[in-house]
Design a protein around this nucleic acid. Structure first.
Length: 438
RNA sequence: GCAGAGAUGGCGGAGUGGUCGAACGCGCACGACUCGAAAUCGUGUUACGUAGGAAUACGUACGGGGGUUCGAAUCCCUCUCUCUGCGCCA
């Protein structure tokens, strides 16, 4: 959600931004917002005036009663009652306008960064930096489920019976590898100075509607029957929800957090669940990073954050690249975003294993995440405080089992075993490979 | 889960229908005193919205939502959370 002042002061800029994102059908929203905003303010002024009258009448009635002038008090009561009818009417009207305004405002996309490539959809995303050149494998790389089955590491049939399609049993060394990657990713981020956090895996509807739109919620979130609780789709939901409505002290920023959680997603729409495999599933686990910082620092953190993910994959000897999200493919809340994609030697192309976004103040405005700065002077040049919206960013550190696909394909040996890079061995009991199961 | 008590500003804590945006204390900011500091004294100190160049004015907010009333921190309903006791559990 962008600042309404920006629309008031510079509607052309907001319209230009909409055009850059190829959402021209949203252009009328800008004028709609201006009109609604005018009406809202007019109503507020009228309402405030009437409420001021009500307040002074109420005080007057109070003193009249004390003086024992019951007749005059009754008169004033009548007047106040009449006044209240109009107040109620105004309240109803403003509630309608507020709802319409909120709807229009949340459909207007965040202003995108100057360096976001202009493009219509994901086909126009731009390759950024490449880390580790992919090597040609001298043998055929099988589908990841076949690799996993040879290692005795997966049981999809049982998962389908117990839970349905889109779930999995990981077993033995593969399950251990899954945990090893998460533990390594966690320690990697702790070493970068991030604070490790395990958040709630269920959140209230109030928080859900804060962090996503109704449509997103329908397509993603599992609801707990008989409770006002939803399973989180990513730890970002509970991590950001943690700061809803809070004003943080300037000294607390930047908050650099790395969180672990399982993630539950319905995966309605889009491509749905594949029949075979663990690429798109209802349940996975993720190490995430979240930064809440001052506005002037968010560009810097964005660069750091996606580079951390790239560095992590490089340390596991997996070739990755940065794919810069173009204007048309950028979600409305985002200022800038890129994916980290890992190389698939089987498909001979890159596929997404993580996504880094700078939401500037758009998410913070929606959720009321502010910070208090004391380095501000008022008109009298006295030191005083000032509240501002913080900037929020999020990025995937590692999300197995999807990222295991990249791992397995890149580290598969000709004999079917899978090589374990140095950095993970201490989490694997010293093993340097996972052997084929006899 | 059951029973009782409670939720007020950055913190502690008064306030049980009108004069309450809220006593008092702590903290914080500015000033005086001082070579400087501590102590002391004085002044100021909630946020958000609207109008205004600004000073300021008005409105809203006492855990969230709803209600009663001319008027609600205060009364009623409801939800959430906290404390105490019992129960249950890893």
């Amino acid at each position: 959600m962008i600042d309404i002042n920006l629309i008031r002061e510079n509607p052309e800029l907001v319209k230009e931004n909409i055009k850059k994102k190829f959402q021209d059908k949203k252009l009328p929203l800008v004028d709609e917002v201006l009109e609604l905003d005018r009406k809202k303010r007019a109503l507020q002024q009228e309402g405030d005036g009437l409420r001021a009258q009500r307040n002074s009448l109420a005080k007057k009635i109070g003193s009249l009663m004390r003086e024992g002038k019951a007749d005059e008090a009754e008169e004033a009561k009548e007047l106040s009652k009449k006044n209240n009818d109009r107040v109620a009417q105004i309240e109803q009207e403003s509630a309608q306008i507020d709802a319409a305004l909120k709807k229009a405002m949340s459909a207007i996309p965040n202003i995108i960064a100057d360096d976001v490539p202009i493009g219509r959809d994901d086909s126009e995303n731009v390759q950024g930096k490449v880390f580790l050149e992919p090597e040609e494998k001298p043998f055929e790389i099988p589908y990841h489920v076949d690799i996993l089955e040879k290692l005795g590491g997966i049981d999809l049939d049982s998962a389908r019976r117990t839970s349905g399609n889109g779930f999995y049993y990981l077993t033995g060394d593969v399950a251990r590898l899954h945990s090893a990657v998460l533990a390594y990713a966690r320690d990697f981020m702790i070493d970068k100075g991030f604070t490790y956090c395990i958040p709630p895996f269920m959140i209230r509807s109030e928080v859900v509607s804060g962090v996503m739109s109704f449509e997103e919620m329908e397509g993603m979130m599992y609801k707990i029957e008989g409770e006002d609780l939803y399973l989180i789709g990513t730890s970002e939901h509970s991590m950001i929800g943690r700061f809803m409505g809070r004003t943080l002290a300037e000294g607390e920023l930047p908050l650099t957090l790395t969180s672990y959680s399982p993630c539950f997603r319905k995966e309605k729409g889009a491509h749905g669940i594949e029949e075979r495999g663990i690429y798109r599933i209802h349940q996975f686990e993720k190490q995430e990073m979240i930064v809440i910082c001052k506005p002037e620092e968010s560009d810097m953190w964005y660069e750091k954050m996606w580079n951390y993910t790239a560095e992590l994959f490089v340390s596991m000897e997996i070739p990755v690249r940065q794919l810069i999200c173009c204007s048309g493919d950028l979600a409305d809340l985002k200022y800038k975003s890129c994916d980290i994609e890992a190389w698939s030697p089987r498909q001979k192309k890159y596929f997404e294993v993580g996504s880094c976004s700078n939401l500037t103040d758009a998410q913070a405005r929606r959720l009321g995440i502010r910070f208090y700065t004391t380095s501000w002077r008022n008109a009298k040049n006295e030191k005083t405080g000032k509240n501002e919206f913080a900037h929020t960013l999020n990025n995937t550190v590692a999300a197995p089992p999807r990222m295991l696909i990249a791992f397995l394909e890149n580290h598969l040996q000709e004999d079917g075993s899978v090589y374990i890079p140095e950095v993970l061995r201490k989490y694997m009991g010293g093993k340097s490979k996972i052997e084929v199961k006899k």
